[in-house]
């Protein structure tokens, strides 16, 4: 709003000058408030650092080995990105299943959602990492070596599978809400024009639902970057795995965990910023 007001050249209208002054003042006050909050942050960080140094914290070690952990950032982002994409597809079909009148589709999707939401992510991770190979061996013993291969996944594949399955179930609600947020009139208009359900979904409903869904998927992506730490249990060489490995070897837990935590934090801040930009851009396409 403020930007649109400022774009109007201040002409002879005295009201406009008053309005502009008020808008500028409000902005100045906001800026001062933000600065104060920033100062509090800096003080907190300084206190934290001072405290850590008192506790024989070894900054030298951090500088020497941060690079090793840093190389896990790519893996963390990659695993999260692929997983959020697969999870979105699962969530879309989950939502369609929930909204469908077909008992098979409804049954499959409600079963999937119930099982995943009813069990801890950690158990799911173990199940996929330790349980699936066992199934594979069993199949091999039964004489289906090709089927057995399917159940033998690499560490990264297992990690992606676990995160996708888990987030897909939770994101089903997001997709369902998005599909339902599109007004009933849109469904009726498309139906009255003779569209099939699939045409209506693809051409009319989904493009509108996506606008509602994208911000929430962004939030899920940000959350997932941190939940992806759990796949370190599978031996995926991401941030947490690398930090933990060094920490155990040299007994430098605080040092390495701090590096990992800082990296996740930076990832979150950057992703949140990217997301807010994306949201603004998407809103823009519809505005007057």
């Amino acid at each position: 709003m403020a930007e649109t007001v400022l774009q109007i050249p201040p002409e002879s209208d005295p009201d406009l000058a008053v309005g502009l002054a008020l808008v500028r003042k409000a902005r100045r006050i906001r800026l001062i408030e933000t600065t104060k909050v920033g100062i509090v942050w800096l003080i907190l960080l300084a206190l934290l650092t001072a405290g850590l140094l008192q506790l024989r914290f070894d900054p030298q070690y951090v500088f020497r080995h941060a690079n090793f952990v840093l190389r896990g950032v790519g893996t963390t982002i990659g695993v999260s990105l692929v997983s959020i994409l697969i999870a979105s597809v699962l969530a879309l079909f989950g939502a369609l299943g929930r909204l469908s009148r077909n008992p098979i589709a409804q049954g499959i999707s409600s079963f999937y959602i119930s099982v995943i939401r009813g069990t801890p992510l950690l158990v799911q991770v173990y199940f996929i990492y330790l349980g699936l190979p066992q199934i594979g061996q069993q199949l091999k013993a039964l004489g289906y070596p090709q089927l057995a291969d399917i159940f033998t996944l690499s560490e990264i594949q297992s990690g992606i599978l676990a995160l996708s399955l888990n987030y897909g179930a939770y994101m089903t609600e997001i997709f369902r809400a998005g599909l339902q947020a599109v007004g009933h009139g849109q469904y009726e208009a498309a139906t009255a024009l003779g569209m099939t359900r699939w045409q209506m979904l693809r051409r009319i409903i989904l493009p509108q639902a996506i606008r509602v869904i994208i911000p929430d998927v962004g939030n899920q992506f940000i959350a997932m970057q941190k939940d992806s730490a759990l796949v370190s249990l599978m031996g995926v060489w991401e941030i947490t795995f690398r930090a933990n490995r060094l920490a155990r070897k040299d007994s430098k837990f605080i040092e390495m965990l701090l590096v990992a935590a800082t990296l996740y934090w930076i990832l979150t801040v950057v992703s949140s910023w990217l997301q807010s930009r994306l949201e603004k851009r998407m809103a823009h396409a519809y505005e007057r």
Binding site: A192, L193, M195, Q199, Q208
Partner: peptide, 30 residues
């Protein structure tokens, strides 16, 4: 339905499509 055309009280135009796109959508897709 293809024999009939319906106009609603609440218009129900497609907000993500331009005026022209609203009109060409069904003939092209259906």
């Amino acid at each position: 339905r293809l024999k009939t055309g319906m106009v609603f009280q609440d218009f129900n135009v497609f907000p993500h499509k331009t005026a022209l796109e609203n009109i060409i959508e069904a003939p092209m897709v259906v």
